[in-house]
């Protein structure tokens, strides 16, 4: 059961990255490779705030949110807006990811840094397994976020505008939606979210510069399983990836953890190329 809890928490981390991917994908049909790196920057800021500066938690949360939001805003302006076609965006956001990796290594060094969890770190017994408070928090946050986003997108004008934009960008434009502005602010919001989540993710993963690549890819697997743009899909995807990784590492050995996730990815992509929760459309000329 301890393994299951660990896997669920890990899956929640991946799902959180995937939520970030999806927010950007829904708003601008682009794929932000640097999403996981944004979250990584959040973990570093959390480390600096909580460990180095010993600031109160609320302040650190604000700090991480604001800092990563600013980074995301810069990324949108420099690496996404000026680029036309979606394939070039993949290259430039990959560039942003590499750049963030390099910069964080310069600033914080290559060693893993601890990020204490504000909810404490005493082990709890739950349903016959041992679990850290932060692991429970991660699962709760992931579920809450998906519910919140779904509710927001149905209930509010901005949310509906987002959905309209995702459905048909030009039609949304003709309806008087400022598509570029909306895309910018959604991107910044996805950054703010990544920063905020850094405070939750850091205690589980540590703040380390190599975090980005692995998170980015596992987060992508989650999206591939759940389907691009599907929020409930991220929960299912995260569940699958987290459990597969934890169980494979436990029963087959740590070197099989990623290999098993890859096998799942290939299987899913071959059977349902657009994910489990998105309907395929027949191709048109």
């Amino acid at each position: 059961m301890t393994i299951i809890w660990g896997g669920l928490a890990l899956g929640a981390v991946y799902a959180l990255v995937a939520v970030g991917y999806n927010i950007v994908f829904i708003s601008s049909k682009t794929f932000n490779f640097a999403q996981a790196q944004l979250m990584m920057v959040g973990t570093f800021v959390a480390h600096t705030g909580l460990v180095t500066l010993r600031l109160p938690v609320a302040l650190v949360v604000l700090m991480a949110t604001a800092a990563v939001m600013a980074v995301a805003a810069v990324e949108e302006r420099l690496a996404i807006r000026p680029v036309g076609d979606p394939e070039a965006v993949l290259v430039t956001t990959l560039g942003a990811a590499v750049l963030l990796n390099g910069l964080t290594q310069l600033v914080w060094g290559g060693q893993p840094l601890t990020v204490p969890f504000f909810g404490g770190d005493q082990v709890l017994e739950l349903l016959g397994g041992r679990v850290y408070p932060v692991e429970i928090a991660l699962v709760v946050v992931a579920v809450a976020l998906v519910v919140l986003f779904t509710w927001f997108s149905r209930r509010f004008v901005t949310g509906l505008a987002l959905l309209a934009m995702a459905e048909d960008r030009e039609a949304a434009m003709l309806r008087g939606i400022d598509v570029r502005r909306l895309a910018f602010w959604t991107f910044a919001a996805s950054g703010a979210l990544a920063g905020l989540l850094g405070v939750f993710v850091g205690p589980k993963t540590f703040a380390v510069a190599t975090l980005g690549a692995s998170l980015a890819l596992k987060g992508f697997v989650v999206v591939a399983i759940g389907g691009f743009g599907s929020m409930p899909g991220t929960l299912v995807g995260g569940l699958v990836v987290g459990l597969v990784e934890a169980l494979a590492a436990r029963h087959l050995g740590s070197e099989y953890a990623s290999i098993s996730v890859f096998a799942v990815l290939i299987a899913i992509l071959l059977v349902r190329p657009s994910g489990l929760f998105v309907r395929t459309r027949e191709r048109a000329v």
Binding site: V91, G95, A96, L99, N101
Partner: peptide, 11 residues
């Protein structure tokens, strides 16, 4: 540098 090259190159 690699990151900057990728961004500048792509843009």
């Amino acid at each position: 540098f690699t990151g900057v090259f990728l961004i500048v190159g792509g843009v």
